[in-house]
Design a protein around this nucleic acid. Structure first.
Length: 570
DNA sequence: GCCGTTTTCGGCCCGACTGTTTTCAGTCG
């Protein structure tokens, strides 16, 4: 809605920086915790770039679904007008000319005008520009939705390997939204250093999957792949590699805020270095750490460069150090052929040991999932088998289960069976369309169950197809913190659940997190890296992560909850 | 519309590429 307001403001000729404020606020909110919670806490105005007016508009939109200001603007233009601005290559100036001078108010109008030749001879719209507009229309129509991280990352790795094989590129790195671990990305950004940038760019535009070359300059090029995914490459000299990484990693908002801060110190920050305006001295940095140090800032992790308050926290010295992959000592959520996994129990245990884990848990499904579930009797026979195998590989395999949470919040095993498990992951797999109140009660009841250690994939979202169940997030976060129940960040690329913005909110409640792979095959144990990426976006530290703790602390986390509940029952 | 460790008014990040131009406007990230 803020983005739509911004577009209409541009058409209406509102001052540039006024409409820009709406665009920046929209971007900030995308990476901020859920708006409802911020409004309830009165914290909207704490976000950078959101003041009195925008806070009021946002609250109005959140509560009523629209804004009087928006309605007033929208009434002045045909609703199809925004299509023009969505065409790559058409910006506000061109769109205004098309609408004002030619009455073009939709994509269909534009195509008719192109075919009829009515746009020939328009100032600043020569034959090449008109060709580009046609190409832009094709791209607009054939555009795919944003690409999930789980597809973008392997593709980015293939591209960097391809460029590396050319032999002229050094310091190849994937930056932009992929490096920030955004759940979906609009494009892929790659940087490298080279003394022969022309050769690197020439190789880049010849990439076998390239369907069009959008731009091909001296240091920068862009290509489109099949389906419209855009890849941008930037090549600079080695001595500015740190500046280059920094410039192309932060979100637009992070970078704007950083440069505004630098300007106040008399410095101009760009990919070419840090320019001291007074002396004219340009400082180049080989590493990103040097860039932040040169600005008198602590290092800010790539996943935290979102423009949602990290700069203020860094300046105040309160920015937490986010958990790292290396800090994990185990993984509580993986499946074997005992339920719906592809690999055997022994393969999964061997693979967990090979990763250097001190411990892990095999969490098979419960009978509620039908034939893939493990019955209570089989669960007991599994324990002896697990003990035998784990001894062979020198890893502690915890006997666990991913137990279904039924509609009423009760679990799919009886208490005796649950008590026999080392820890319990409890997840919703059914009746996902319960009402807001029923789903909230269901999840809170699961948290209050003394045997539930971790709530698995707490929102149930699928990054491409489902936003997640409808429930009161804050109420569940409060219950999780109060009962000593961990919330999972599931690393399956299609889940990434909890979503990072919600995890950051949950963190404020004092929740403990579990970063798991939810692997259904050996190689999927790598999914845990995605979970870590989301945790870092949420500012989660090592101490807040259950599977970053020593085994004895994990076991006492489980025991403490069971004991506390037993006491409460007396 | 937002914001301030000079400021409550007057600024507002920075640079590459393209096409249409003879020095720059428009778009993009």
């Amino acid at each position: 809605m803020l983005g739509a307001i911004r577009t209409l403001m541009e058409f209406a000729g509102e001052p540039f920086y006024k409409s820009m404020a709406y665009e920046r606020a929209a971007e900030t909110l995308e990476n901020a915790p859920p708006v409802a919670g911020l409004i309830a806490a009165g914290e909207l105005e704490k976000l950078p770039g959101i003041g009195k007016t925008l806070a009021a508009r946002i609250a109005e939109i959140a509560t009523t679904g629209s804004s009087a200001y928006y309605e007033e603007l929208a009434a002045r233009y045909p609703p199809s007008l925004a299509e023009l601005l969505a065409v790559p290559g058409i910006g506000i100036k061109t769109a205004q000319v098309l609408f004002r001078d030619f009455g073009i108010a939709s994509l269909a109008d534009l195509e008719r005008a192109l075919d009829a030749g009515t746009l020939v001879g328009v100032a600043r719209l020569g034959t090449k520009s008109l060709e580009n507009v046609r190409r832009g229309i094709l791209a607009y129509k054939g555009r795919t939705t944003r690409t999930p991280l789980g597809r973008a990352l392997p593709l980015a790795q293939r591209l960097t390997a391809y460029l590396a094989a050319g032999g002229q590129a050094a310091d190849l790195a994937c930056v932009g939204s992929v490096r920030r671990a955004e759940v979906t990305v609009g494009d892929i950004d790659i940087v490298c250093t080279s003394s022969e940038p022309g050769d690197v760019i020439a190789r880049f535009v010849r990439f076998e999957d390239a369907r069009a070359v959008l731009a091909e300059g001296v240091t920068k090029a862009s290509i489109w792949l099949e389906g419209g995914l855009q890849i941008d490459l930037r090549v600079l000299p080695q001595d500015v590699y740190g500046n280059l990484l920094q410039h192309f990693t932060g979100s637009r908002e992070h970078n704007i805020q950083l440069r505004e801060y630098a300007v106040r110190k008399g410095l101009r920050v760009s990919e070419n270095g840090i320019l001291d305006v007074a002396t004219g001295v340009n400082r180049t940095c080989r590493t990103e750490e040097e860039v932040y140090a040169a600005l008198d800032l602590p290092y800010i992790a790539p996943e935290m460069r979102l423009g949602v308050g990290e700069l203020d926290a860094a300046l105040a010295g309160t920015l937490p150090a986010p958990v790292t992959l290396e800090e994990l000592r185990g993984d509580f959520h993986m499946h074997s052929t005992w339920s719906d996994g592809r690999d055997s129990l022994e393969d999964m245990i061997a693979a967990a040991a090979a990763r250097g884990y001190a411990y892990h848990a095999i969490s098979e499904h419960s009978p509620g999932r039908g034939h893939i579930g493990v019955g209570a009797d089989r669960l007991r026979t599994r324990r002896a088998l697990v003990r035998e195998i784990e001894a062979k590989y020198g890893v502690r395999t915890l006997c666990s289960s991913e137990v279904d949470i039924r509609s009423d919040g009760t679990l799919d095993y009886d208490d005796a069976t649950l008590a026999d498990l080392d820890l319990v992951v409890a997840s919703v797999h059914s009746a996902m369309n319960l009402s807001h109140d029923a789903m909230t009660a269901r999840l809170i009841r699961a948290c209050e169950n003394p045997y539930v250690t971790i709530i698995g994939h707490p929102t149930g979202r699928n990054v491409e197809t489902f936003g997640g169940y409808d429930f009161d997030h804050d109420a569940v976060f409060e219950a999780a913190a109060r009962t000593g129940t961990a919330l999972e960040i599931d690393g399956q690329p299609k889940r990434l659940d909890l979503p990072s913005a919600m995890a950051r909110r949950a963190r404020d409640f004092g929740v403990t997190f579990s970063l798991d792979s939810d692997a259904h095959a050996v190689e999927q144990l790598d999914n845990v890296a995605y979970a870590v990426g989301q945790a870092r976006r949420a500012w989660i530290t090592r101490d807040e992560v259950l599977n970053a703790r020593p085994l004895e602390d994990v076991l006492s986390f489980v025991a403490a909850k069971r004991k506390r509940s037993a006491r409460a029952a007396e």
